[in-house]
């Protein structure tokens, strides 16, 4: 297992090495030590490898990830797994703002809480937050699912498109065009699969409420001007 100590190795070398991994590589499991809050750790990977980051990371950890499974044993700064395409990113601590922003695929799991704008402009990513999320989470969320086992802050799902939101706790307020929707068996099954993929067990899917778009703002109309 390659081990990279970021206290001794420049970040640029680490990311370049991760980018060089080819389909036939045997280096499929990496350990990264002493990230010490550095930004852009393990970004742009496009290989089915496992990367364990032992410590706290700064902005954009695992940004634009494809295929890889990145586990952070610590907290993550702004934009963890931003624009992720596929694979999985698992943060065992808390995450800052814009977690999973614009993600187009894959799964982001946060064991702790997520700050504001979690899942902003998400485009297909699935996000499971075991704690709570801050205000304006799922702002302009286009596709994918956001699951929150705790509470959600103000303006959840503001200007949401087709993303699905599942919240078990309290929602402080819903944003423009975001409404509560019926939780059907189909949605319960989908939620159960997401929770399972995130390693969450023993949770009653019936305790969640589902939110999504009322689709009233899909075409500009002057009568909706008060909503904008």
């Amino acid at each position: 297992m390659p081990t990279v100590d970021l206290a001794a190795t420049p970040l640029r070398e680490l990311n370049a090495a991760l980018h060089r991994i080819g389909p036939q590589s045997n280096e499929t499991h990496w350990r990264i030590l002493n990230p010490r809050g550095q930004h852009a750790v393990a970004v742009g990977i496009d290989a089915p490898i496992a990367v364990e980051v032992e410590g706290h990371v700064g902005y954009y950890c695992a940004g634009m990830n494809k295929q890889a499974t990145v586990v952070v044993t610590g907290n993550a700064g702004t934009g963890v797994a931003e624009n992720m395409m596929s694979g999985q990113v698992h943060v065992k601590g808390d995450v800052s703002q814009a977690a999973g922003a614009t993600g187009r695929g894959g799964l982001l799991v946060v064991d702790g809480n997520a700050s504001a704008r979690c899942g902003i402009s998400m485009k297909g990513i699935d996000i499971v937050v075991k704690g709570s999320v801050g205000h304006l989470s799922a702002f302009m969320a286009q596709a994918g699912s956001l699951v929150v086992l705790g509470d959600a802050g103000d303006a959840l799902g503001d200007s949401i498109y087709e993303a699905r939101l599942y919240v078990r706790g309290a929602v402080k307020s819903l944003g423009a065009d975001c409404v509560e929707k019926k939780m059907t068996d189909h949605h319960k099954a989908k939620l159960a699969r997401l929770l399972g993929a995130a390693g969450v067990s023993g949770v009653d899917v019936g305790a969640f409420r589902r939110y999504g778009s009322a689709r009233r703002l899909y075409h500009f109309h002057i009568d909706n001007v008060g909503s904008y």
Binding site: L11, N15, H39, A40, V43, G44, Y59, G63
Partner: peptide, 12 residues
């Protein structure tokens, strides 16, 4: 920081 991330993703 965003510029730095883009440089890292594209190997500068």
């Amino acid at each position: 920081i965003k510029i730095h991330e883009l440089r890292e993703i594209t190997d500068w």
